[in-house]
């Protein structure tokens, strides 16, 4: 589906990514994790073709991403950007309809069935009743749902998510990822998500790609790659990895260096 071959990127002489290799197959959900500033979002931009690698190539369906026309690519690859939708004066339905842009003629009209599809996406995303409200009058969570609806209106085969859960409270985080996961299963969508929360990543992703210092540290199932040595190496943090009591998926518990005074007293008492 999408493949990175010896991809390197330097911006202003600084190496952001260095010799990145991987291949991702269609129909699965992938997570990209790593510390801040390691180039996760940059990697996503390379995959979506809005940035070009200094050396190496990104292949989508066997063809270099840079060789696609923007409109052609937008019918197959959609991106949910960090921070969601800006406050714009368009209504929810108008904003979602813009997701159909790659299928529209120059007047912004679509020959067939576009409107029906938009209605279905609106219903799917629980945006019924909000469709005629203006985007700038919505809450952050609602706006993120509109952003996701717009992306789904693009009918992509590959969906790229750049930290989709940032600024959302935990209820919305789960809701959003559940929706994505449902869609992924229904339409055999491929999803690549940059995620901050390792526990969520372990639950939702089939495979995790771990970046460290601009290169691929590990790439495999959460069971395989999530361990305390990796956490120490990549994030420089002490952690315990335990299986989730219900799902068995590896989950991370941090072990802070400094202890609270209460903990220290308890430790003393044990001695």
């Amino acid at each position: 589906m999408i493949e990175a071959k010896a991809v390197s990127l330097a911006i202003a002489g600084r190496n952001i990514l260095h010799d990145v290799h991987f291949e991702m197959e269609s129909g699965a959900m992938y997570g990209i994790i790593g510390p801040n500033g390691v180039g996760k979002s940059t990697l996503l931009r390379l995959l979506s073709g809005t940035e070009k690698p200094t050396t190496g190539t990104v292949l989508f369906a066997g063809r270099p991403v840079s060789g696609y026309k923007r409109k052609e690519l937008a019918k197959q690859v959609a991106v949910l950007q960090q921070g969601g939708l800006p406050a714009v004066g368009f209504t929810v339905r108008e904003a979602v309809r813009m997701g159909r842009f790659p299928y529209q003629n120059w007047l912004g009209e679509e020959p067939h069935a576009g409107e029906q599809f938009i209605e279905r996406v609106l219903a799917d995303m629980g945006l019924r009743g909000l469709e005629d409200r203006r985007v700038d009058g919505l809450s952050g969570g609602e706006r993120q749902r509109v952003a996701l609806a717009k992306v789904m209106a693009q009918e992509p085969e590959l969906l790229l998510l750049d930290e989709p859960t940032t600024y959302l409270d935990i209820g919305y985080q789960i809701q959003l990822l559940d929706t994505v996961k449902r869609w992924q299963a229904e339409r055999r969508l491929t999803v690549i998500a940059v995620l901050h929360d390792l526990n969520l990543a372990a639950h939702y992703c089939d495979k995790l790609l771990i970046l460290r210092e601009g290169t691929v540290e590990a790439f495999g199932s959460p069971q395989k790659v999530m361990n305390s040595e990796m956490i120490k190496r990549v994030f420089d943090a002490n952690a315990v990895i335990l299986p989730h009591p219900e799902t068995g998926v590896p989950q991370l518990l941090l072990r802070p260096e400094a202890m609270s005074s209460e903990q220290r007293i308890r430790k003393e008492a044990k001695r």
Binding site: L85, P102, Q154
Partner: peptide, 24 residues
Amino acid sequence: IRYAQHLNLFVFGERHAAHLGVNV
């Protein structure tokens, strides 16, 4: 007029417009 719809997509930002299929 031909580029009016492109300008609509620009309100979301240039990169966003590119993702939607605009040759920015």
